[in-house]
């Protein structure tokens, strides 16, 4: 009857979005009057027992060299054995890059009802329905699941991290791991930067910045705030910024606590990727820019004058003179 949370990792580090999934799974277990446990495939360089503070009592671990890199087929076979072995009825993933590959696969194998991109705890008052983001953030749907086993993947930055007391018990699970079919040749990660999908604060620039040479102030503001940088589609298409910074309907969708849009008009396709942000700030010299309608705070003004002053103010606030 328990809730089982999948712990995703890369480079032997647990993903922050998996911690959110643990908190979500633990809250769901409390709501259902059952226990929350987690499962890790592979090994990490972290104190697993300490994850107990997020609300899980036990962490199942399946060891195997082949489990350090995702092969969704191989991982699915392992999880399909683990789920009945642990007695779990609800499995929670983060809807992050690996979760998007793995969760639907497992759902198909177990014939489990699946909701991806959940943004809130399930409504279990009568039945079991989960609120998810649809139409690229422009609406929500409540999906009912009627299967015995249910799988939910939680959108990153949709559930708060809360910690309490407690240590989790580590329980090795003995499951035979097959041979991988996917060979990982290389992986590159921009080091020292906050991954955009995990970032709580994001500073984003658009065509109003006129050229790639003007991104210095965007980067400086982002660095001072500990924010990730992003951009609009025309900027990525013009190769002013890398494609992985493009947020919007056809780029990536994000839901940070703060989104600062500088020189972005706010076309509907851009809004689709950012409108789940909790606070939106728009800096644009055009008072008619549609983005102001979706914003919480705004300044109508020239970014080249406003942003340096914002940087000064943040420096003052942080005591950096």
């Amino acid at each position: 009857m328990s809730v089982l949370i999948y712990i995703d990792h890369s480079e032997a580090q647990i993903k922050k979005s998996s911690l959110e999934a643990i908190c979500y799974g633990a809250a769901l277990a409390r709501q259902l009057g059952t226990g929350a446990e987690a499962i890790l495939l592979g090994t990490v360089n972290e104190d697993l027992a300490a994850l107990g503070k997020y609300g899980v009592t036990r962490i199942y671990q399946v060891a195997g060299e082949a489990l350090q890199h995702l092969d969704s087929g191989l991982f699915t076979k392992v999880l399909a054995e683990a789920v009945p072995a642990t007695g779990a009825k609800v499995v929670v993933f983060s809807n992050n890059m690996n979760g998007k590959a793995l969760a639907p696969r497992l759902a198909a194998r177990l014939k489990a009802g699946f909701v991806s991109g959940a943004v809130a705890l399930p409504d279990t008052a009568s039945g079991f329905s989960v609120k998810k983001s649809v139409f690229s953030g422009k609406a929500f749907a409540h999906i009912s699941l009627k299967t015995d086993i249910k799988i939910i993947s939680l959108n990153p930055n949709s559930f708060p991290l809360t910690t309490g007391e407690g240590k989790a018990e580590i329980a090795p699970l003995n499951i035979a791991v097959g041979a991988p079919k996917v060979k990982v040749v290389s992986a590159t990660q921009s080091t020292g930067q906050v991954p955009l999908t995990e970032a709580e604060l994001v500073v984003s620039g658009g065509r109003g910045l006129k050229g790639p040479e003007n991104w210095g102030m965007v980067e400086e503001l982002a660095k001072l705030l500990g924010a990730a940088t992003a951009c609009s589609r025309p900027v990525a298409d013009a190769h002013w910024r890398p494609h992985n910074e493009h947020v919007g309907q056809t780029g990536i969708a994000i839901a940070p606590n703060l989104y600062i849009a500088i020189g972005i008009s706010g076309a509907i396709q851009h809004l689709a990727g950012v409108n789940r942000s909790k606070t939106i700030v728009v800096i644009n010299k055009d008072p008619e820019a549609p983005f102001f309608k979706a914003a919480d705070y705004g300044i109508v003004g020239d970014a080249f004058e406003v942003v340096p002053k914002m940087i000064e103010a943040v420096k003052k606030l942080k005591g950096i003179v």
Binding site: A107, F114, G137, K138, A141, F292, A294, D296
Partner: peptide, 17 residues
């Protein structure tokens, strides 16, 4: 295995400050 029970639109923004 699943069905859509209902849709909802996000609450309107209070307006920009």
């Amino acid at each position: 295995l699943t069905s859509i029970a209902s849709f909802e639109l996000p609450p309107a923004k209070a307006g920009v400050k």
